[in-house]
């Protein structure tokens, strides 16, 4: 096992601002977020599940896919519907030791975005790495 892999196994890989993640992230739980911040409660309830799992001591990875990447757009506000929005929760992820933030590459490019546009450093995951990513988490919750 080389140094990179052992760091991944301990969950210590920091997200890279650009380029592909060098290894495949590993953890107890992978939460996949596929919905945008406003318009439904999927994103908020998915993030809630991630926070609770982290509070229970689980090593949580987040995968932002589809419209879920919009959760990471900077300068968000509460919005017209009087709901709190999710940007506050995104800000709190580090406090919950949720540091493995993964973004589906296609979700970014198809929306004209790049990792630099996002409010936090993330690891970009190419489509062919997704099966391996799922395989490296014993529990996957899909929102």
């Amino acid at each position: 096992m080389n140094e990179t892999e052992s760091a991944i196994d301990k969950g210590e890989v920091e997200g890279k601002v650009e380029g592909k993640v060098e290894g495949i992230a590993k953890g107890d739980l992978l939460v996949i977020l596929r919905h945008s911040p406003h318009g439904s409660s999927w994103l908020r309830e998915g993030l809630d599940a991630a926070l609770v799992a982290a509070a229970f001591g689980q090593q949580v990875s987040l995968l932002f896919a589809g419209d879920g990447v919009l959760a990471l757009m900077p300068h968000q506000q509460a919005g017209a519907l009087g709901q709190k929005g999710t940007h506050g929760v995104i800000d709190m992820l580090a406090m919950y030791d949720i540091e493995t933030l993964l973004v589906d590459a296609h979700a970014l490019t198809s929306r004209g975005l790049s990792a630099e546009d996002l409010m936090l450093p993330v690891s970009v995951v190419e489509g062919d790495a997704l099966p391996k990513l799922l395989d490296r988490h014993p529990l996957v919750l899909n929102f």
């Binding site: 739980l29 599940a49 229970f56 689980q58 529990l139 919750l141």
Partner: peptide
């Protein structure tokens, strides 16, 4: 609480959504 969902996911052979 949601902790029970996490617990269920970890303590069973399969969690089907």
């Amino acid at each position: 609480g949601l902790g029970q969902l996490v617990e269920a996911g970890l303590s069973h052979d399969r969690l089907i959504t």
